[in-house]
């Protein structure tokens, strides 16, 4: 509805003076290829971005949506729509709490985790980065271990936040 900042630089310029902390920004990658109750994958991503705004202290920066051929997927999978969002989870949220909120959104959109790797799905929200935090637990690895190899993450991220470098890289 409102004019969202189109780049992270714009977000920081607008809300930095008000208290936004660049070192706290989280990056979420959004992906979908099956239709959901909100319509085709593209519409699903737009609705998912609205939901992400409920986890953010400020407007969410959303990249353009790109379409990609499926990588390492079961044969016959439809093409993927992908985007990246940058947001500020606020001061008191932990990475695990944030991850659980993302999974709650996925579940609400009708995702059933079958356990198959890279299966077709109605919505996939991956936590790529949470500030500068680095961790490696069975439930969560930060930054996301395969982010650096994924063009469908790096490419949209370069559009909205070209200055960003993955922590530890």
């Amino acid at each position: 509805m409102s004019s969202q900042p189109s780049t992270t630089a714009e977000l920081i310029a607008r809300y930095g003076p008000a208290g936004l902390d660049i070192d706290r920004l989280a990056i979420v990658s959004l992906g979908a290829n099956l239709p959901s109750r909100f319509g085709p994958a593209r519409a699903t991503l737009a609705r998912a971005a609205d939901q992400l705004s409920t986890l953010s202290a400020w407007p969410v920066v959303l990249s353009p949506i790109i379409e990609t051929e499926p990588v390492d997927c079961p044969p016959g999978s439809p093409p993927f729509c992908n985007a990246v969002a940058v947001l500020d989870p606020g001061e008191s949220v932990t990475p695990m709490e944030f991850l659980q909120s993302l999974q709650a959104i996925e579940a609400d959109f009708g995702r059933v985790r079958s356990g198959r790797v890279n299966e077709a799905r109605v919505l996939d929200l991956d936590l790529i980065c949470f500030g500068h935090q680095q961790c490696r637990t069975p439930a969560l690895t930060l930054p996301h271990p395969r982010a650096a190899q994924r063009d469908f993450v790096l490419q949209p991220l370069a559009v909205i936040w070209p200055e960003f470098r993955l922590p530890g890289s």
């Binding site: 008000a18 409920t54 986890l55 202290a57 500020d88 989870p89 606020g90 001061e91 949220v93």
Partner: peptide
């Protein structure tokens, strides 16, 4: 709204 509480806290 949790997002309000987040912004309020930052403020």
């Amino acid at each position: 709204l949790p997002e309000y509480r987040a912004t309020r806290k930052v403020a």
